[in-house]
């Protein structure tokens, strides 16, 4: 039984020139409990829209999202979303940002600070509890955003290119940390990226997305043992293979 079931979702937009854009067309896929799923595709192919629909921030034209075979109405109470950047509340310090989800559940300050502190330690932000977002580097801000999502404690974490704005070194380090956290916390993660390398490094399974309309073009199970070595021949072969699929797709489309 699938944990998450995205069932024949259609979504269109009207752009500024009053043209109809078919963002998602009969999009269907499953995600298993505890799985690390990557959605890979060119920028602007509706990947963000998928996450927004799963989280309940947007409604599909038709089709439905099922969690444990229950339809999602309004905001999805089983998931949370990590945005690409600048989603920390600038008027709150790090610990109050991370404890935000607990505060919304009316958990008292002592308890939520204790809980938030665990995740601050987990993402390596100890000592920055009282710092404000503007005092943090981009990488530290995304660590805090991830900690905030973890502290909210939902099975499913949706991530929309969370490392997209970071430099390569920081990105690689955060990828490793994310994998550790994922294993330790037993979360289900749906991770959107346009970076092939990132998808191979992280995913149990990669869904290669078709662009406009968006649907799953190709599905790929990554069986390489972790920690994955970017320089290993298998990794490189996968990288080349996926690149060809993407290029074919772009040329034919």
């Amino acid at each position: 039984m699938a944990f998450l079931n995205v069932d024949q979702i259609n979504k269109h937009f009207i752009n500024e020139r009053k043209e109809e854009i078919n963002a998602l067309s009969d999009l269907t896929f499953l995600c298993h409990d505890g799985e690390f799923l990557c959605l890979l595709g060119p920028t602007g192919c509706g990947k963000t829209t998928i996450l927004r629909i799963i989280s309940g921030l947007e409604q599909p034209d038709n089709g439905q999202v099922l969690v444990n075979e229950q339809g999602v109405h309004g905001i999805n109470q089983e998931s949370t979303l990590v945005f690409q950047q600048y989603s920390l509340f600038p008027w709150r310090n790090v610990i109050d940002n991370i404890a935000f989800g607990l505060e919304m559940r009316n958990i008292n300050r002592t308890k939520r600070y204790a809980r938030a502190q665990e995740f601050i330690d987990l993402v390596g932000l100890r000592g920055f509890e009282k710092a404000f977002p503007y005092e943090l580097s981009g990488g530290m801000q995304q660590r805090a955003a991830i900690a905030r999502a973890l502290a909210y404690d939902k099975r499913l974490i949706l991530m929309d290119e969370p490392f997209g704005a970071l430099d390569e070194r920081t990105r690689h380090r955060l990828q490793e940390e994310l994998l550790n956290i994922w294993r330790q916390q037993r979360k289900t993660i749906i991770f959107v990226t346009h970076n092939i390398d990132e998808a191979i490094f992280l995913a149990d399974r990669i869904l290669i997305m078709h662009d406009r309309p968006g649907y799953v073009e190709n599905e790929l199970k990554i069986v390489l043992p972790r920690p994955r070595d970017r320089k290993s021949p298998d990794f490189i072969k996968l990288h080349i293979g996926i690149r060809e699929v993407l290029e074919d797709m772009l040329n034919s489309g």
Partner: peptide, 28 residues
């Protein structure tokens, strides 16, 4: 910013909480 509103929503904020914890401090 819409990203603050949406972040609060996916972290479980109700309508009232959204007003008190996001809209108000952000426009203060």
């Amino acid at each position: 910013k819409n990203s603050y509103v949406e972040s609060a929503l996916v972290l479980g904020a109700t309508h009232g909480q959204l007003f008190r914890k996001i809209i108000l401090p952000s426009s203060l």
